[in-house]
Simulated assay, not measured.
Amino acid sequence: MDLSTRYLGLALHNPLVASASPLTSTVPGVRRLVDAGVAAVVLPSLFEEQVHREQLRDLQLVEAHEHAFSEAATYFPSPSPSPTQPGGAKRYVRLVERAVAAVDVPVIASLNGSTPGGWPLFAHAMQEAGAAAVELNITFVPGDPRTTGRQVEDRHVEILERVLENVSIPVAVKLGPQFSSPGELALRLDRTGARGLVLFNRFVQPDIDPEAMVVSPGFPLSTPTEAPLARTWIAVLHGHVGCSLAASTGVETAADVAAYLLAGADVVMSTSSLLRHGPEHASVLLDGLTDWLTRKGFAGVDEARGRLAVPRDVDASTYERAGYVAALEHARETYGGVPRT
Rank of each mutant, 00 (worst) to 15 (best):
L175H: 09
G176A: 15
Q178A: 13
F179G: 02
F179L: 14
S180T: 11
P182L: 14
E184Y: 08
L185K: 04
L187G: 00
L187E: 01
L187K: 07
R188Y: 05
L189R: 08
L189I: 11
D190M: 03
R191G: 00
G193Y: 05
L197P: 00
F200G: 05
N201Q: 13
N201P: 07
F203Q: 12
V204H: 12
V204C: 05
V204T: 12
P206V: 06
P206M: 06
I208A: 11
M213E: 15
M213D: 10
M213W: 10
V214Y: 03
G218I: 13
F219C: 02
P220I: 11
P220S: 05
S222K: 10
P224C: 05
A227P: 03
A227T: 01
A227L: 06
L229N: 09
R231W: 06
T232R: 15
L237W: 11
H240T: 12
V241E: 03
V241F: 06
V241G: 02
V241Y: 03
G242R: 15
L245Q: 02
A247F: 13
A247V: 00
A247Y: 09
S248I: 07
T249C: 08
V251W: 06
A254F: 10
V257R: 04
V257W: 08
A258N: 01
A258Q: 07
A258Y: 15
A259H: 03
L261F: 05
A263K: 10
G264Y: 09
V267H: 05
V267D: 05
V267I: 12
V268L: 10
M269H: 09
S270I: 01
S272R: 09
L274H: 10
L274M: 08
L274N: 09
L274A: 04
H277E: 11
